[in-house]
Amino acid sequence: MTTNTATASLISTRVLVLIAAAIVINIVGGQINDALRLPIFLDSIGTVLVAVLAGPIAGGLAGLLTNLIWGLLTNPVAAAFAPVALVIGVVAGILARLGWFRTLWQAAISGVVIAFFLTLVAVPIQVYLFGGVTGAGSDFAVAYLSQVGQSLFGSVALTVFGSNIIDKVVTALIVWLLVRQLPQRLVTGYDYLKFSRA
């Protein structure tokens, strides 16, 4: 592409615009989830999509900014979890680079791996910054698990991983499906795609 030659920068203008759109897709994905009354979130489709198309840096940025903007629009608590969203994008980007978005099974396993790493980051934030709760429905699970003898750390970890694993697997599968099916004229110029197309 010729347009971006004049300023050499880490992220091309095209990827920049894609990240902006991905942030909105994350937010609107949550609305689609509500419309379908599904018990998951669907709020990181954009992040994983950018990670697969443009790599871990772009993916991480999309995740990070999604939560900061969420913090601005609805609940400042979301902003504190921005590092978690960042990790989703970075891990997805690395998995894509390693070729783990090529087949259905690989994508599903990638979803599990993403859920694992996001838990690693989310738990310390939730435990040390927020005393184990977030003010959302999943706090009931934390309360129950603590009561039946789990440590707070264990309760939060189980809750976060449990509530994310299906969502991240579904998200990874949707992105896998989308990326496999994208029309020719839309995918030229996304360097990372070659790692995910068999």
Binding site: L18, A21, V28, L49, L178, Q181, P183, L186
Partner: peptide, 9 residues
Amino acid sequence: VAPLVTTAL
């Protein structure tokens, strides 16, 4: 989701 993503691209 697909039309949302393709139009965004």
